[in-house]
Amino acid sequence: MSISFEHVSHIYSKGTPYEYKALTDINLEIEEGKMTAVIGQTGSGKSTLVQHLNALLLPEEGTIHILDRVITAGEKPKKLKSLRGDVGLVFQFPEYQLFEETVLKDVAFGPKNFGVPEEEAQKKAKQALRLVGLPEDVYEKSPLELSGGQKRRVAIAGILAMNPKVLVLDEPTAGLDPKGAVSMMSLFWDLNKKHGKTILIVTHDMEHVFHYCDNVVVMADGRVSLHTNVKEFFKDTSLCKGLNILPPALLRMKDLLKENGFDVPEDVMDETALAKCIARQVKKNG
């Protein structure tokens, strides 16, 4: 098994008046090669959870297995740096971490930190920039000159240049316009399906979970309250409603049709199937 949490808990500011238990007894196995969504309300522990994956945060209790490494509470982790290369973590609004004079230099910064020689690092940076779909004429520009969406792509390329096996993204589409968000999500889909990266995405957007992800982890009050595959999760809207989440539009449409006396089977899971199903019923009656 590549990534698993066993009885993991985390406490912020331990031993001060601000002490706060952010994670409690997390038991979780992340499927390798899949795209997993981490959802839950603000403050439910999503970000705390994913920051354990590259040992930015260490568990107070429990054990975490990541790829071939083991992180145990109370022990100083070994091979920490190589772990950060293998598990790429992209923070929320990552464009705020850009600092180099040129886009290319900034993207090459990661590999260079891992001891990759200059020339090789540049090659890796160019590969990563191609992967995120940035044109060559921006390579020598200052990151500050780019648009918001482009900056974010540069930041993501900065992580991809380290060639991580696992990519963790904390709300990667926050603040983008709808078109920008969709093209960002299809980038991750490509990285997952074509380049075999295991992907974890923290998100609030159910459309993205529904259309792009394989599995869902639901966090609530610092615990994993549900872990299932996307098909099961969106079988109907009852789970979403129970969690106070707005279901994807297709599911809301199905509900509305059912309320109005249409017959919509559970396995209708895309627009084409739904259109066929409606067509049958409005024509049958005629």
Binding site: N54, R84, L89, F91, Y96, Q97, N113, G158, M162
Partner: peptide, 30 residues
Amino acid sequence: IIKAQESRGVDLREGKFSEKIMAILSLIVP
């Protein structure tokens, strides 16, 4: 920002002098 740069392999505690300068720049500029 410290966490974000640490995720890119920055080590603010150890490393050579030139690496340290880069590490500090990567924090100050953002």
